[in-house]
């Protein structure tokens, strides 16, 4: 009985984090983006500097009509947002916040594989949405999503494999247990490749070709309204949280920090994740969208070779120190 309670409690906490963290990132994006453009951003909702803007947005989305186009494939169309969102919830459950069993939703032995595999499923939601909308722009968006996923999945996996090689384990907590500060310069190239490829997989600017609004309206999500559209947006921000947390865990040492008490490891994890989320927003504000061919070129001619070089370096160092 105690076990059941424990599991239920953990899942509840994961669920709450899953709902709150993307909103925090979204609100930060509102404000940071505004100030980077010399604006103020939302100022009214909730009173103090528009802190409740996303809550208000959610209420608005919930009130809207849920439209399914007449020519659409109803079942697939309606299922797509759930397919896009749920994988991130699963991934969040296995990301360790701090050392020990207490600070992780569910320990998974093959953590890296689980995380990357399940994140890949999320993109299936975009594909389903793009196809089922019976809209040419949506289909184009779906195609671009698929092309982007196919080309960026490889460097991401290779970069993750480099860390797994360094640590000698594919468990996320195992990797963090093996972490030492000098991994940071050692794996820096892998970290960059992983982060960039992750951004591309999330279709975040400057890799947001699949939703390029000036060309194909909103890509796969063009026909979506109301709550289902909100779910897609939530999936995007949940994806940011996951990507940042994962980069933190794999490359930045998670709960390890230069100072601080043993019990405060989770604070380091959160801090690094928040910093990376800021970088994600920062990149969005700073850079224009890449063209489709530039996207592919970056993946195949830059990221994949870099990731392979990182793996080679990891192997050499690993053999040298053992």
């Amino acid at each position: 009985m105690n076990d059941v309670l424990d599991v239920a409690l953990r899942l509840a906490i994961v669920f709450v984090v899953f709902l709150v963290a993307p909103l925090l990132v979204g609100q930060t994006e509102h404000k940071v983006m505004a100030h980077m453009q010399g604006r103020l951003g939302p100022m009214y909702a909730g009173g103090f500097h528009g802190w409740a803007q996303l809550v208000a947005d959610g209420v608005k989305f919930a009130q809207k009509e849920d439209v399914v186009p007449a020519a659409a494939d109803r079942r697939v169309f309606q299922l797509a947002p759930a397919v896009a969102l749920l994988p991130y919830l699963l991934v969040l459950a296995v990301i360790p916040l701090g050392p020990g069993d207490g600070a992780v939703g569910q320990l998974v032995d093959a953590g890296i594989f689980f995380v990357l595999a399940v994140m890949g499923i999320g993109v299936l939601g975009s594909l389903m949405a793009g196809w089922a909308s019976a809209n040419k722009f949506s289909l184009l968006g779906g195609l671009r999503t698929a092309a982007q996923l196919l080309s960026y999945e490889l460097p991401m996996l290779l970069a993750a494999a480099s860390v797994a090689m360094a640590a000698g384990t594919v468990s996320l907590t195992g990797i963090l247990d093996a972490f030492a500060w000098w991994w940071l310069p050692w794996q820096i190239v892998g970290a960059l490749v992983f982060f960039v490829a992750g951004l591309a997989e999330l279709q975040r600017p400057p890799f947001d070709m699949p939703v390029a609004d000036s060309e194909i309206i909103f890509g796969a999500y063009t026909e979506y309204t109301g709550l289902r559209f909100a779910l897609f947006l939530l999936a995007e921000y949940a994806g940011i949280v996951i990507l940042c947390a994962l980069t933190t865990v794999l490359f930045l040492g998670g709960w390890h920090g230069p100072f601080g008490a043993d019990g405060l490891g989770w604070l380091w994890t959160l801090l690094k994740t928040a910093l990376l989320a800021f970088v994600v927003i920062w990149l969005r504000v700073s850079y224009p969208r890449l063209r489709e061919d530039q996207l592919q070129k970056l993946a195949w001619t830059t990221l994949v070779p870099l990731a392979l070089a990182q793996i080679a370096l990891t192997g050499i160092v690993k053999v040298a120190i053992s």
Binding site: V32, A34, H35, G38, R39, L40, M43, W282, V285, S286
Partner: peptide, 22 residues
């Protein structure tokens, strides 16, 4: 060039906003 782009946005963030709260 990429670094310069980042620097521009970061600098703008620290400056006063020009929004008129009409």
């Amino acid at each position: 060039g990429l670094a310069k782009g980042l620097a521009v946005t970061l600098r703008t963030m620290t400056k006063k906003t020009v929004t008129a709260q009409y």
